Computed example of a mutant assay.
Amino acid sequence: MKTIYLFILGLLLSMNTIFAQLKPVKYADADQVLNGLSIKSVKKSSQNPGILLLPAWKGIDNASKEIAENLSKLGYTVFIADIYGEGNYPKDNSEAGKQAGFYKKNYEAYQKRIQLALDQLIKSGANADNIVAIGYCFGGTGILEAARGHLNLKGVVSFHGGLGKEASRPVEPITPRVLICHGADDPNVKPEEILAFQQEMRDAKADWQMIYYSNSVHSFTNPEAGNDNSKGNAYNAVAAKRSFEHLQLFLNEVLKK
């Protein structure tokens, strides 16, 4: 029992050490206070590549913090965006669904919050012309909105994110390169949504790719999602590892280091 306790204590202390490298950044959208997190690259580079990270629907979580830490070790300055702001952080899935639903419907407000976070990433030292945005779940939806909104990005990467947009919206050219990392068994993204997205990419003349991971559902990169695929949300260690490797290949291709 004592051994287990010491193991858990050591794990918690290790996580606190990791997250201590992330620096809180307070910024604003008009009178709405936002609280992002920034972490510098551990490697010096004249190119100063940056990554804007959009978290899942509950906001900044341990998964996004750990990813930011890992990316900083690879040579990237990272900023984790706060989309909701003080007073609006979801307490449960129901509240998260309502908050995320608002920004999915009001996509211009979502694009604005992403741009404000992008500004903070640049202020923290990233090269404004050498940035990729990545997003998870709701954040994966956001990076596509960033691309559709013509934000100055070299590329965007979605992990188990929503792909759709209203059919009435016009299709405009998409210049950032696009990588979609998708769970092959994700019940949250319907086949017709995938087909519509792929047609949008063709019509937008985008440089895009979509990778499917077998035996993977929604949230396959998040260790806190459990391991029961029947619930529609579950962690898949193999898919998480492969998708992070695909992210690194994409970053090496798109960004200057």
Score class of each variant (00 low, 15 high):
G164D: 13
R169I: 08
A96E: 06
L163W: 02
A128I: 10
I134E: 13
A196Q: 09
K105E: 13
N130Q: 11
E192T: 05
E145A: 06
S124P: 00
G140R: 04
G97N: 09
I114F: 07
H160S: 13
K190I: 08
G183L: 09
I134H: 06
A133V: 09
M201I: 03
K105I: 02
V132T: 14
P191S: 10
I83Q: 04
T141M: 11
G97A: 02
P90T: 05
E193C: 11
V156R: 01
G183C: 06
K112D: 00
L144H: 06
Y103K: 07
S124Y: 09
I134F: 08
E166G: 10
D185Y: 07
K190E: 12
L163R: 12
L179F: 00
Y110W: 05
L118K: 03
A196C: 07
D186H: 09
N93L: 13
Q198M: 13
P170F: 00
N93E: 14
Q209Y: 05
A126S: 13
Y212E: 13
I143H: 07
H182Y: 12
N106R: 04
G125N: 03
V171N: 10
K123M: 00
G85C: 14
K123I: 00
I114K: 00
D82H: 05
T141K: 14
G85N: 14
S124H: 08
I211L: 10
E95R: 10
Q120G: 05
F159L: 04
K91I: 04
A184I: 03
K98C: 00
V171G: 10
G87K: 00
L163C: 06
Q199S: 13
A133M: 10
K104F: 03
N152G: 08
Y107M: 06
I114S: 03
Q99T: 08
G162Y: 15
I174P: 11
I114W: 07
G162V: 04
A204H: 01
I143W: 03
D186W: 07
E145F: 11
D82R: 01
L118Y: 09
R169D: 15
A133K: 11
E95D: 06
E86C: 11
H182L: 06
K154E: 15
Q209A: 03
C137Q: 12
E166I: 02
I174T: 06
G97V: 05
N93I: 12
Y84H: 06
N127W: 02
S124D: 11
C181M: 14
A206Y: 09
A128D: 13
Q111Y: 00
W208S: 12
Y110G: 00
N93K: 10
K91Y: 05
N127M: 13
K91H: 12
Y107L: 02
D185V: 03
V157F: 09
I194R: 05
T175F: 09
E145S: 06
G85P: 15
Y212I: 05
H160M: 09
E172P: 08
P176M: 03
Y107D: 01
A128V: 09
A204C: 10
A204S: 14
L118S: 02
G125E: 03
D119T: 12
A204W: 00
F159Q: 04
G87S: 10
K91F: 04
H150V: 04
Y107V: 04
I174E: 10
